[in-house]
Write a protein that binds this DNA or RNA. Structure first.
Length: 787
DNA sequence: GCGGACTGCTTACCT
DNA sequence: ACAGGTAAGCAGTCCGCG
């Protein structure tokens, strides 16, 4: 095969030929076509004996198997994937218990792995948006005409078309889009792209060719909204971001907005074409500006180059898969195929244990310090050399069943820590008398001397991250070098954090319950070990712990560093002693992260307090996790009063004053006229209405709205979430709820007080003032007391 | 018909 | 279309209750 001299912009296949796009020296798109690409998968050489000669022969005769080759470890089987018997053949192999390797790879992926290609970094990008005829009203993909489109590229070059002949309009869109490598839209995976596709099908335009390939197929697509949702949905409240409409995102990040218009799109099209043009172009300009502001695509491109992926398949699982396949390939290793539907179901039957969540010593504390394990799961993957190749499979099942025998129906968190330690010690003597392995807390064993692909990769990623961080500090903020280093640091971080995820993902080729559980359960053990050591060394009791965090009460600042260094030293000593870890390693680091001057520890995953220090920087803010003030289904009134109450508590207000305050709030709820906004409950739909087994208030209301065609049903797709239903409880006993717009002024005050307002407060109050009988305030308010 | 005890479903969160 | 753990509230069911 002649090696491609140019950098690859994009590649795809039609199950027969592979098309590789690059740009020539003049910058023109060119296609390199590998006709009848010889695709293959592999099996292990020891599985060869499981095959029956006559059957293989018949597959050869009918042209399915084209040829085969072997080395010491693997047999490559070259096949015609278009052959009707292809899937039969795979089924036959599975029935013979032959493990298929890399049989799920597309022709493109196979070609990219086997040819040492360089990915093009300088991609030409354009932002696009379409406007469609909205005369009818409801959105239905492809039903009505496309009225206009706008495109702007990264240099600011702008295109717009609104000609009446839709076929010509689409042609011009296609021609402009094809000047670029990637087109970027907003919610375009759900709207613009399928819409254009559907309308092009009306005129058969999707099959127009240029240089021998369909133009439509040679343009990559990115939905900027999906990416920003992934990046920012966890921190929406911090950003003050209400949602992911283009207008809202532009408001928060750009302090800009879409063009306002009162007319419908079709009215603008007919009566005010200039405004439509302005509107359409403004949208793509917002996309361009958003990207400039956040370097989103720049980062994505970096990630693609790094892992060997294309922009239009930008999922963490896919990126990591490409990366690991490449790394394995460099070592001459071939990996098993992704599970089929049956294998996936099998995988799902196993429940992977997660992180350790200690039942908190609920209470009101001062000087609470939070410590965090730095990159806990990556640390474990590296320290224990966890991975497929290092895993000692011969004893895996027996050692696992020993673990479950030991658990004896108990939950892991119920196990006495000393007992667990003792069990592991006995097991280690039994399974690893020669000390050749690392033992995980799940009683699985990993060979010491051959570094696994996943472990080596994770170590490499952590090392890279350190280097990029150092590089960042070497350069000034605002320079290209700084931006690059920061981008790469983020890329590496995202990948590192996802390595554990793919070992527990039932659909991934890296799924392995022994491995996934070894990681999480060792994490549980380390967390408990740290508490154990802290108790022994300093007689400090851990107040709370969740996965990789540990909460301790330490008043003196000087003591914090002592605790930190002592515990880290002891942790590393203990893992060497208990699990046979490499003595030179000094991996585990329980970092000091933040301090609460005061902390109300309410329950698991629910706490709120006065944050006074974080990452070495002084702070002065109320910080909470899981409590009602940050939950989106909390009514506004409660949100406000809750924070007010917390402020009173944190300010050492006398309990009698607080009791009076509670009573006053109750009086207000029962007697004052409330703003609808204050008592509106907002709940989001998560799936199509028909799929609900249990129909709570918001679902019943949504059902009616759906029947009236006021809302669209929820689509069961990634990143497309359902409508938020705003409603008010009129009478809780009879389950009477109304939409906020239909509110008549009648609402169930007793219900609101008891459930929506007082309950969250009571949970805090009974933790802070356990001696007070707060139930008293729950009872119905008597407007006219006898006294 | 209504409530308590219980289970399962649903939402939204934490790491 | 990378994971599991958890609280809280409601729906639905069973059952008792002259």
């Amino acid at each position: 095969m002649n090696k491609l001299k140019h950098k690859v912009v994009y590649a795809w296949d039609n199950k027969q030929d592979v098309f590789v796009m690059y740009r020539d020296d003049a910058g023109k798109k060119k296609i390199h076509c590998i006709e009848n690409f010889l695709w293959y998968f592999l099996i292990k050489i020891e599985d060869l004996s499981k095959l029956q000669n006559d059957i293989i022969k018949s597959y050869k005769q009918n042209g399915l198997i084209l040829k085969s080759s072997r080395d010491d470890t693997y047999v490559k089987i070259y096949c015609d994937r278009m052959n009707a018997g292809f899937y039969d053949f795979l089924e036959y192999l599975k029935k013979q218990k032959v493990e298929l390797l890399e049989a799920d790879l597309s022709l493109t992926k196979r070609w990219l792995l086997d040819n040492d290609v360089v990915f093009e970094e300088d991609l030409k990008i354009a932002f696009f948006d379409i406007e469609t005829d909205d005369t009818i009203g409801n959105i239905e993909i492809g039903r009505d005409k496309i009225l206009s489109w706008a495109i702007v590229d990264t240099t600011g070059k702008t295109y717009y078309d609104s000609k009446e002949d839709e076929k010509e309009l689409l042609k011009s869109f296609l021609n402009v889009a094809d000047k670029y490598d990637v087109i970027v839209g907003w919610n375009s995976a759900q709207f613009d792209l399928p819409y254009v596709k559907a309308r092009m099908d009306v005129y058969g335009l999707r099959w127009i060719k240029k240089d021998g390939v369909e133009i439509w197929n040679r343009i990559q697509h990115v939905d900027l909204m999906s990416r920003l949702i992934k990046l920012f949905s966890p921190i929406m409240s911090i950003l003050g971001l209400q949602g992911f409409s283009l207008n809202e995102v532009a408001r928060v990040f750009l302090k800009s907005s879409k063009i306002e218009h009162k007319e419908k799109i079709h009215e603008m099209y007919e009566n005010n074409p200039e405004l439509l043009k302005e509107y359409n172009i403004q949208d793509v300009k917002l996309l361009k500006e958003l990207n400039e502001k956040m370097s989103t695509l720049f980062l994505m491109i970096k990630e693609c180059i790094w892992t060997g992926s294309f922009m239009n398949k930008f999922y963490v699982g896919e990126l990591l898969d490409n990366y690991i396949l490449r790394e394995a390939d460099k070592r001459g290793l071939h990996l098993r195929s992704r599970p089929d539907k049956i294998g996936e179901e099998e995988n799902r039957k196993n429940f992977i244990t997660g992180g350790y969540v200690q039942t908190p010593l609920s209470g009101y504390y001062s000087d609470v310090r939070v410590f965090d394990f730095k990159s806990l799961y990556p640390t474990i993957i590296i320290g224990w050399n966890i991975g497929e190749e290092s895993h000692v499979k011969e004893i895996a099942k027996e050692a696992e069943s020993e673990f479950y025998k030991f658990l004896n129906e108990r939950k892991i968190e119920e196990i006495d820590f000393e007992e667990w330690t003792l069990f592991l010690r006995v097991q280690r003597r039994k399974f690893d008398p020669d000390n050749k392995y690392y033992q995980s807390a799940y009683n699985q064993f990993f060979i010491k001397d051959v570094i696994s692909v996943v472990s080596g990769l994770t170590a490499n990623l952590l090392k890279q991250r350190k280097e990029f961080k150092a590089l960042m500090h070497k350069h000034k903020e605002g320079t290209t070098e700084f931006a690059n280093a920061r981008a790469m640091q983020e890329v590496v971080k995202e990948l590192t954090n996802s390595v554990y995820g793919i070992t527990a993902d039932a659909t991934s080729r890296y799924y392995n319950r022994y491995i996934a559980k070894s990681i999480t359960i060792t994490g549980q053990y380390l967390n408990r070990l740290s508490s154990d050591l802290i108790k022994k060394e300093f007689d400090l009791t851990t107040l709370y712990a969740d996965t990789d965090s540990v909460f301790l009460q330490i008043s003196e600042d000087e003591k914090v560093e002592v605790v930190h260094s002592t515990i880290n030293r002891r942790l590393n000593e203990e893992v060497i002693e208990r699990f046979g870890l490499n003595p030179s390693e000094d991996l585990i680091d329980l970092e000091y992260e933040k301090k609460y001057g005061r902390l109300i520890l309410a329950d698991k995953k629910r706490y709120i307090g006065h944050l006074v220090e974080s990452d070495g920087k002084p702070m002065d803010t109320i910080h909470s996790r899981g409590t009602e003030n940050i939950k989106k289904d909390t009514i506004e009134y409660t949100r406000r009063k809750f924070i007010e109450l917390v402020s009173l508590i944190l300010a050492d207000t006398d309990v009698e004053v607080i009791k009076k305050w509670v009573k006053d709030v109750q009086t207000e709820v029962y007697n004052e006229k409330m703003d609808v906004k204050d008592i509106t409950i907002i709940k989001r739909l998560s799936k199509p209405i028909a799929e609900y087994k249990s129909k709570s208030g918001h679902v019943r209301l949504a059902e009616i709205m759906l029947n009236n065609k006021e809302i669209m049903d929820t689509v069961k797709k990634k990143h497309s979430w359902g409508e938020r239903i705003h409603y008010i409880v009129v009478d809780s006993k009879s389950k009477n709820v109304v939409l906020d717009r239909d509110f008549t002024g009648v609402w169930d005050k007793a219900y609101y007080w008891k459930v929506q307002i007082f309950a969250p407060m009571k949970r805090l109050l009974s933790v802070v003032y356990p001696e007070v009988k707060w139930d008293y305030y729950e009872v119905e308010y008597m407007q006219n007391t006898l006294f």
